[in-house]
């Protein structure tokens, strides 16, 4: 006997409803775990006393004094730190992009001796934490006379980005059909023209991703910056924030929280505006 549609519905529905409820539950829990600390930092930035382990999520005495202090305290040079960090991040991202896109094109579209070995070599290099290499990197910068310079840091950041970015880009390029470029080559375009006029526009999402990753990396990076930079005028946001936390005894958490909020704001804005590109860039390669 054929099952009526009503019976079919009641047989399917409880399972689906339960599944949906569970899914939302998991998402809500995950969001809470992620958002709660952020809200805490936000509320701490409005606190008037120095404690972090405080009473409630909503501060008893909300005040803008911490934000005001950021711009008036002589030890807090927020404007300078922010400018330096933006400069480092933006230039690192651009340089990384400029270096890795042609390289990824070569790895994807061309065949040459040592191609596979280099790719595997990149993967192996990724496994070493950058921290281990600090003294070696410092010595190299010393030979080049780049200690205590932003250029030196950019070299380290952009250079360190190469393996991962090349892998990411190559993966995406591999998913773009070669036929389009081949037909362009037949029509008389040079390899470079095929690269810039056909592949790159198609690869825009992944280029955004690579640029964003290489922008975010240096933005909050502390270890390398701390080691390389000596002059106060070259400090980054991370170094500045560290100097705020290390005082004689008590950490001034409210100011630290306020600086954190101001630091995070540009990133949030950038991410929200470029979100659709990032998501499509990360997912499209997989589907094709």
């Amino acid at each position: 006997m054929a099952v009526t549609s009503r019976q079919k519905k009641t047989q399917r529905n409880p399972g689906r409803v339960l599944g949906t409820v569970l899914m939302y539950l998991v998402l809500i829990i995950a969001c809470t775990i992620v958002l709660y600390p952020l809200l805490w930092v936000l509320s701490c930035s409005f606190k008037s006393t120095a404690g972090l382990v405080g009473s409630s999520l909503i501060p008893a005495d909300p005040t803008l004094a911490n934000y005001r202090k950021i711009f008036t305290d002589p030890n807090v040079n927020f404007g300078r730190w922010f400018f330096n960090t933006l400069k480092l991040s933006a230039v690192s991202a651009l340089v990384a992009l400029a270096l890795t896109t042609p390289a990824a094109y070569a790895f994807s579209r061309m065949r040459f001796a040592g191609r596979r070995q280099t790719l595997i070599g990149f993967m192996i290099c990724q496994m070493f934490p950058g921290f281990m290499a600090i003294v070696a990197l410092y010595t190299l910068l010393g030979w080049a006379g780049l200690i205590d310079t932003h250029l030196g840091l950019i070299v380290l950041y952009a250079g360190g980005a190469i393996p991962f970015s090349i892998w990411l880009l190559k993966g995406y390029f591999d998913s773009v059909p070669v036929e389009i470029e081949e037909s362009a080559l037949i029509d008389g375009a040079t390899k470079f023209q095929a690269f810039t006029r056909i592949l790159l526009p198609l690869a825009r999402p992944v280029l955004y991703v690579v640029a964003l990753i290489n922008f975010l990396g240096p933005y909050a990076e502390y270890l390398l910056a701390q080691v390389v930079i000596n002059s106060g005028s070259k400090w980054t946001l991370a170094m500045g924030m560290r100097s705020l936390t290390v005082s004689q005894f008590a950490t001034d958490w409210p100011i630290f929280s306020a600086v954190s909020v101001l630091t995070a704001l540009p990133i949030v804005i950038v991410f929200l505006s470029a979100e659709k590109y990032i998501v499509s860039g990360l997912t499209r390669g997989a589907i094709k």
Partner: peptide, 23 residues
């Protein structure tokens, strides 16, 4: 005069000094 984190100066000077970039 440059600001510095007092917890880091010792290790930084040990690295930067030999390079001629120390204080």
């Amino acid at each position: 005069v440059e600001p510095a984190g007092i917890l880091e100066t010792a290790s930084k000077v040990q690295m930067a000094g030999p390079m001629g970039k120390g204080p």
